[in-house]
């Protein structure tokens, strides 16, 4: 098992495509950081229009913590794509390359292979999230400095003292990892169905985009199904920047994501075990 995992990781990290994701995370972070460096004040002015009429807010508003939040928020849509890029390719890409049939002529159980594919996607996700943390949090702090953090919700203005932030980010990145692991497991499932890797990547994105729209639509019709969509729970990391922190809701979201993840992996195993390898 360990050897199989080592081999999977070797394959993932030997491949140039894997590093595209790290490049994209770097690029997006840098672009937003640059934009905020030049235009941050007017952006904030726009965002806090309603508030600035009544309150004078001074100090390093556009600080590293704030920028990190902005980047994380906008990466919400892109990161799943980057996860799918690797996780969606794990089975389908090998089928497409023809290496899957060679793999499976070796004495490896298919369940174990699926699990190892999931585990290696998870490790890749961990690496990407750590890189994300470095590029967003640490780099932003380096560029923009520290400060109290402002968090704007649609109807709430939240301010968090700077000494109270780091642990929230640790928790938030941990939660983001869970959310992205769910995406990885979804990609893996779709990957098992396909014999080319573009399909699962596009399908993962399609599902995430459509469900995210449903999760954000404020229509009574959708309000009943929202709690059951994993996309509604993927932004649970934001809960750590609320006041008070809705621990119960976060725990519930985490639970939903874990259930989805386990479900996706289990279905992948069930399906893949019976699949004829035609590629």
């Amino acid at each position: 098992m360990r050897q199989l995992l080592q081999i999977e990781l070797f394959k993932i990290f030997k491949r140039p495509r894997t590093y595209i994701s790290f490049g994209i995370v770097t690029a997006i972070s840098l672009v937003i950081q640059l934009a905020m460096l030049t235009d941050g004040k007017s952006y904030m002015g726009f965002a806090m229009q309603g508030l600035n009429e009544q309150f004078d807010i001074h100090g390093n508003i556009i600080n590293g913590y704030f920028i990190t939040y902005i980047i994380l928020q906008s990466l919400l849509i892109q990161i799943p794509l980057l996860i799918a890029l690797v996780a969606g390719d794990t089975l389908a890409g090998e089928a497409n390359q023809g290496t899957l049939r060679l793999m499976l002529t070796k004495p490896i159980s298919r369940n174990k292979l699926v699990f190892v594919k999931f585990a290696s996607s998870f490790i890749y996700t961990v690496a990407l999230i750590i890189w994300l943390a470095i590029m967003t949090l640490f780099l932003s702090l380096l560029i923009f400095g520290k400060g109290d953090m402002i968090n704007l919700k649609s109807d709430t203005f939240i301010m968090i003292l700077q000494d109270d932030i780091m642990w929230r980010y640790a928790a938030a990145f941990g939660f983001a990892l869970l959310a992205m692991t769910t995406i990885a497991s979804l990609s893996l499932l779709l990957s098992a169905f396909a014999d080319n890797s573009i399909g699962p990547i596009i399908a993962t994105m399609g599902i995430v985009v459509v469900l995210t729209i449903l999760s954000n639509l404020d229509l009574p019709l959708f309000n009943h199904i929202k709690p059951f969509l994993f996309t509604s729970h993927m932004i649970g990391w934001k809960g750590f920047f609320d006041d008070p922190i809705p621990y119960a809701a976060i725990a519930q979201s985490a639970f939903v994501l874990v259930v989805y993840t386990v479900g996706f992996v289990a279905i992948t195993m069930l399906y893949f075990n019976k699949k004829d390898i035609k590629s």
Binding site: L4, F10, K14, R15, Q97, L102, K106, P107, I108
Partner: peptide
């Protein structure tokens, strides 16, 4: 079909490990 981005040696060693 092999892993094109790996060398012949890497491919062989990997599948040997799986054997």
């Amino acid at each position: 079909d092999m892993y094109g981005y790996l060398t012949g040696w890497e491919n062989l060693r990997m599948f040997a490990a799986l054997s």
